[in-house]
Amino acid sequence: MRVFVLVKHAPSPESTLRVGADGKSVDPVCLTYDINDWDKYAVEEAVRLKEKYGGEVVAVSVGVNCDATLKKCLAMGVDRAVKVPVEAGFDPYQTAEAIVDVLRGERFDIVISGFMSQDTNNALVGVLAAAMLDLPFATAVVELSVEGDEVRAVREIEGGYREEVFLQLPCLVTVQSGINEPRYVSIMGIKAARSKELREHVVKLRGPSVFVERIYVPPTRRAEILKGSMPEVAEKLVELIGSKGVI
């Protein structure tokens, strides 16, 4: 079984977020980057598939500075990594096209992506790639197994309900948080990663289909902020809660 996993080196929403001087970007100085949260689950799931069925796991990342994230994947048990050194910016099409360019030259059974990027929150790249490659797919998967020449995927839908579907191989799934517990990177893993292949794959992007006009802080702010010392604030909270007749 050969599994490809798509990972993004992404700024954390916990970073200090400041709008850039051009009003169209996020000030990069304050951003801290790591593997996109959802993609940790994707890597873990891919490595588990290999541990269960044998084969190879390959990580693909699009971005000029994604080496740290790819090395983390290698340390988690991924066998080799492909870096596409371009900055696709806001347009998910460009990222998907870059990934498709890598996948077209490879054989694979399953492609796993995260559900969405923690910075842009698009939830697009995985399905766009699947559509471009004409692969069957399922999103927000919380249970995954291989049964014969099919993948059984349980996908999360609204309100705590889930949907069970079967996909013919090869296919693509995007995984939802909670599907597994991503492993920590071990010292042994880091050592092993040093001898693994990390190759660059060069592509030419076709130009974006959406354009950033403006980035800004959302306008609304409803809450009345309670001020004072901790005991004062606690006292006010008790008043508020008490006003609903529940104490």
Binding site: P13, L17, Q118, D119, V210, V212, E213, Y216, P218
Partner: peptide
């Protein structure tokens, strides 16, 4: 974007 912390016009 950023889980509700910023907005973008596209």
């Amino acid at each position: 974007i950023y889980q509700g912390k910023l907005m973008v016009d596209l």
